[in-house]
């Protein structure tokens, strides 16, 4: 346990981008809040006011989430490879740390810790931006941006997103770690080409496209089963009948954990991670 905290600390020393990118991105959003034209719609009803606060937090969170996905993917793809590239693996391996703890720590950082850092950064940014916007826009908008119940709902939503996507993207993370532990060069190409080749081979020789569809549904956005229909385009017919702006209408934990794809992905992820650990044990140098 003590070793694991040191391993996590090491990741923060090595990858300062873990906190620098969200800090810089938050800074940019705050600058935008300071200097951009504030063009706030007139909010007529209580429902609109309520939703506006939610949309504001949701938009900031989504922006952070997109940046985070790109960075976390890159982190997972690079982390084991870079140890071999600079040969520092020979230093890490001279210490009593198992390869399994090393790989699992990096997995934890990529799937949970990095998202949490961005989540925190999004919260801080939203707070400061809301403060700035309320001062600049005065009056009505102020109340729309400061609603504790909406804020709490968004917090729960993001934690839910982090948990479900960590599970959903486990096979993707496992694949990236596998490539990172294996490739001698060009990790980006190696991460993309084999799945692409598989899709093409299937299309040409079997004229089917199961692999492509599986990859597509795995990679595109958030796991669909974890959310209720209509969450994407806002066409949820229930909206007006419900508590205004309630986030609960999005969450579908039961659907996510009873979806076969969740468990198939989890199993594939475990296999890929075991393979990545085996490669880390055997491959020391490039």
């Amino acid at each position: 346990m003590k070793t694991n905290t040191w391993l996590i600390r090491r990741e923060f020393w090595e990858n300062r981008a873990i906190w620098m990118i969200p800090a810089a991105f938050g800074g940019l959003l705050i600058l935008a809040a300071l200097f951009s034209r504030v063009n706030i719609p007139v909010l007529n009803t209580h429902v609109e006011t309520h939703d506006f606060g939610g949309i504001f937090l949701f938009a900031i969170g989504t922006a952070f989430y997109l940046v985070m996905s790109l960075y976390a993917g890159w982190y997972l793809l690079d982390c084991l490879y870079t140890d071999r590239k600079d040969r520092s693996i020979l230093f890490w391996k001279s210490l009593p740390i198992s390869d399994a703890s090393t790989v699992l720590t990096k997995l934890l950082v990529g799937l949970v810790i990095i998202p949490l850092v961005y989540f925190l950064a999004a919260d801080v940014t939203a707070l400061i931006a809301a403060f700035i916007v309320s001062i600049r826009a005065r009056a009505a908008i102020g109340t729309a941006l400061w609603q504790p119940d909406v804020w709490w709902q968004i917090q729960v939503l993001w934690i839910y997103v982090i948990v479900t996507t960590a599970i959903w993207y486990l096979p993707v993370a496992g694949w990236l770690l596998l490539v990172s532990a294996w490739a001698k060069r060009a990790v980006i190409l190696w991460s993309i080409l084999p799945p692409l080749a598989l899709v093409l081979v299937e299309r040409v020789f079997f004229s089917s496209h199961y692999v492509g569809e599986a990859l597509n549904s795995r990679l595109m956005g958030l796991p669909a089963a974890a959310f209720r229909a209509g969450w994407k385009d806002g066409s949820d017919v229930e909206i007006n009948g419900h508590v205004p702006g309630s986030i609960w209408r999005f969450i579908n934990a039961g659907g996510f954990f009873t979806d076969a794809h969740t468990w198939i992905g989890l199993a594939a992820g475990v296999l890929l991670i075991v393979a990545a650990i085996q490669l880390r044990m055997r491959r020391s140098e490039i």
Binding site: W13, E14, D83, D86, R87, S88, I89, L90, F91
Partner: peptide, 8 residues
């Protein structure tokens, strides 16, 4: 020469 360059 295997201590990583970023390490303090």
């Amino acid at each position: 020469a295997v201590l990583p360059s970023w390490l303090r």
